[in-house]
Nucleic acid binder design. Structure first.
Ligand code: MN
Ligand code: MN
Ligand code: ZN
Ligand code: ZN
Lengths: 138, 138
DNA sequence: TAATCATATTGTAATGATTACAACTCTGTA
DNA sequence: TACAGAGTTGTAATCATTACAATATGATTA
């Protein structure tokens, strides 16, 4: 699973004429460093320790910007928690129903394209699994 | 894609000692008759015409009951609309970004099980596609 | 440098979906 | 008829998200 470097992300932003403010930089760093597919609240709470003036609205705005620019993806594994993934490569997500942790896994999404959909234009594919992770099985 | 008959559903409810009230009956009928993967609001609004006393809370309660009893599934294709599917057979969902319609498609979920997950206990698999449907492509 | 302008951020209020909860209703049984 | 348990209802509370107006920032121009 390829990971896009932080520098590449900065370039991408410039390509799209998106200014890199201090807040945007910090949110982007948080997303690239953490592998936890965070919620808005996790991002806000963690960053708020360093940036006491940070507004939650800014977090929402920035994430919307990143998603619209195809630099991040929205994960809706549960109906009550929206998560964000800076890794836009195609891959699946497994959520442990016991500890709540979310695991990435590689998946060949091309192989699951379906004949029934041959006349459909497919722009996005999401694969979500749920169950119990090995750590919790012990 | 196998469809469970309404009579089978009734039996399943009895097996689980779930009483079939008039409201529950109507909600169940609505789910089996409509193939639109409705939201709570759609169910409530449509049924409210026939049952003016119906409460939205009852719709929420009944759906929660059906999901807990494994007689319905929750779909979270978008982060802002929770939908329900009475068809619990494994199948994928395609949402048209133009008209909003949701299409079922068959998919062999066993074939996309992954070696990386061989030590995981998988309880549920969801596959969501987005794009443009043939009708909207014309 | 100072003035100007566009963009970004902030805080608060509004919205909308969902849940909590207490009162009421219905149905079957003693 | 009285009672008990389950189901329903309406309202209030909660929580995530969005709208919006005021303020701040940062680049551009004179
Ligand atoms: Mn991921
Ligand atoms: Mn379906
Ligand atoms: Zn776990
Ligand atoms: Zn369409």
């Amino acid at each position: 699973m390829k990971t896009v470097s932080f520098e590449d992300l900065q370039k991408e932003l410039k390509n799209r004429n998106i200014n890199l403010s201090y807040q945007r930089l910090k949110i982007l760093q948080y997303l690239t460093n953490s592998q936890i597919h965070p919620t808005v609240d996790q991002i806000f709470t963690d960053l708020h320790k360093d940036i006491p003036t940070l507004s939650k609205t800014t977090v929402y705005n920035t994430l919307k910007l990143l998603v619209q620019s195809d630099l991040a993806k929205v994960l809706t594994i549960e109906d009550n928690e929206t998560r964000y993934d800076i890794n836009i490569e195609n891959h699946g997500h497994f959520k442990c129903e016991s500890c709540g942790e979310i695991y990435d896994f590689t998946i060949d999404l091309d192989s699951i394209a379906n004949k029934e959909l041959k006349n459909f234009k497919i722009n996005d594919k999401k694969v979500y699994f749920k169950g119990i992770c090995p750590r919790c099985l012990n």
